[in-house]
Design a protein around this nucleic acid. Sequence first.
DNA 1: CTAAAGCATTGATTTGGATCAATGTTCTTT
DNA 2: AAAGAACATTGATCCAAATCAATGCTTTAG
Lengths: 192, 192
Amino acid sequence: MYKLFFQHLNSKVQLTEEEEAHIKTYLTLKKLRKKQYLLQEGDVCKAIAFVEKGALRAYSVDENSNEHIIQFGLEGWTISDLYSFLTGEPATYNIDALEDSELVLISKSAHEELLQTMPKYETFTRLNITGAYLAMQRRLTSIISASVEERYQDFIALYPHIAQRVPQHMIASYMGLTPETLSRIRKRISSK
Amino acid sequence: MYKLFFQHLNSKVQLTEEEEAHIKTYLTLKKLRKKQYLLQEGDVCKAIAFVEKGALRAYSVDENSNEHIIQFGLEGWTISDLYSFLTGEPATYNIDALEDSELVLISKSAHEELLQTMPKYETFTRLNITGAYLAMQRRLTSIISASVEERYQDFIALYPHIAQRVPQHMIASYMGLTPETLSRIRKRISSK
DNA sequence: CTAAAGCATTGATTTGGATCAATGTTCTTT
DNA sequence: AAAGAACATTGATCCAAATCAATGCTTTAG
């Protein structure tokens, strides 16, 4: 339990045993069965979730009730509706489990207290959000400037483990495409 | 000079006079004439730029030499190729001035030293990148799920000052559209 | 073990935005 | 103030992806 979480933490800021133990008192565990929600649109996002095991997705639903996947969260990733978490506004995203999953939750108050009292936690948070920012910028750049075919190839190259575990129509959704289009893209690629 | 920069800094983390003075020793000023480059693709991004005055853009150029605007930077915003800045890899973006501009530059070594020695600077950095992350997530969500028409209306509502100062074809580029398409969208909207 | 649900593929058609091209308009620069 | 450059608009055509629809395949639940 918490193993992966602390592995990550330690890879960014070296912690003593005591520090680990101290942080641990702020964390809670949560198991989620496949298809269960971690967060529903309209609710306030009460915690940031670190994925110890399993896979989740964050998605929004538009007026035609099409789902649009904003983010996947596999082992080692963090998932939340950060805007809702930070502001207390109702969430605009849904988050649910694509597989049975185990999460490490950090509540708002835990997060704030750790930020205030543990410089290393703040550093960890800063590095985390920086990584997330860079990943999203890469995604945005490729949406704006690359062809759909390239984008799919890049996705596969960058996240092969996601492509293996997640149904294809969700990858289509993540890319902003219909499942039919992605199917045809794949065909086109494989016939080369 | 540095006025807006410290205003921003102070709005996020309250600084003493001494702290301000200390930080000031790490900063440099730079003026840029319209059309001048702050950064060219291939060079390493040596500094983060805070815009005191003026307007800049970061953009990438694809294989067909189409420009794609990644980000605008107006007064109070920070602009850089963050990936290049942090890793030392060659930049993939170009940054140039849309108007005569005044920048506050923070070099890599200054940034690192301030992070190490001034907790408040780290907090400022964390809050900044968090804000940038949230802004980009909003943009990405709207690209994936909204119609082009909505996206334009949202852009105008969110960044009216940009729309006023920047040529329309650059807004088209920022939205991933051709100038012709944006022109027609505007026509459609105004005829309602 | 079987029915049903979920998923991927393929085809036909439609559509929104790109591209190509021309014209008018508004800034810049001298 | 004039000339040129940069920019915006409009029209015609083309194309990539969406939509609508049907079929087979695979996973899941009872």
